[in-house]
Design a protein around this nucleic acid. Structure first.
Length: 111
DNA sequence: AGTTTGACGCTCC
DNA sequence: CGGAGCGCCAAAC
């Protein structure tokens, strides 16, 4: 049996690049779509790697399963993420949460 | 080689 | 609906 390929950051980046503007995906969803279920934390690690770097990766479209921006306690990237999302039409409620029923990305349905 | 550490997620209560 | 607890998995100690 050929052992399954190990997850690499690039596998996750590839999925994230497909998320359409105005929609968000969860860490677990990205991991699963990349072919690595239960690697949600690893997706977070992959994004941590890009913190500060300017890339064409729409990293702001990845939030946790509760529809919240995961805190990382550094600089003001949390607020930056929120501004970027609001800029593309994603709405936050009074508890700073996104209604996933409305904004979660569905590959099959959203293209 | 054992332990700790997370941009996480699900179940219980 | 919010918090606690536990599972998860690779990287860093």
């Amino acid at each position: 049996m050929t052992p399954d390929k190990q997850p690499s950051f690039e596998d996750f980046y590839q999925v994230i690049r497909e998320i359409v503007p105005g929609r968000v995906a969860t860490y677990g969803q990205v991991a699963a779509l990349a072919g690595f279920p239960r690697h949600a934390r690893y997706v977070g690690r992959a994004l941590r790697e890009l913190a500060g770097n300017d890339t064409d990766l729409p990293w702001q479209r990845v939030v946790n399963s509760a529809g919240e921006i995961s805190r990382r306690g550094i600089d003001g990237s949390d607020e930056l993420q929120r501004r970027l999302l609001e800029g593309e039409g994603v709405e936050f409620d009074a508890a700073d949460r996104i209604d996933m029923r409305r904004f979660q990305w569905r590959p099959e349905r959203d293209a």
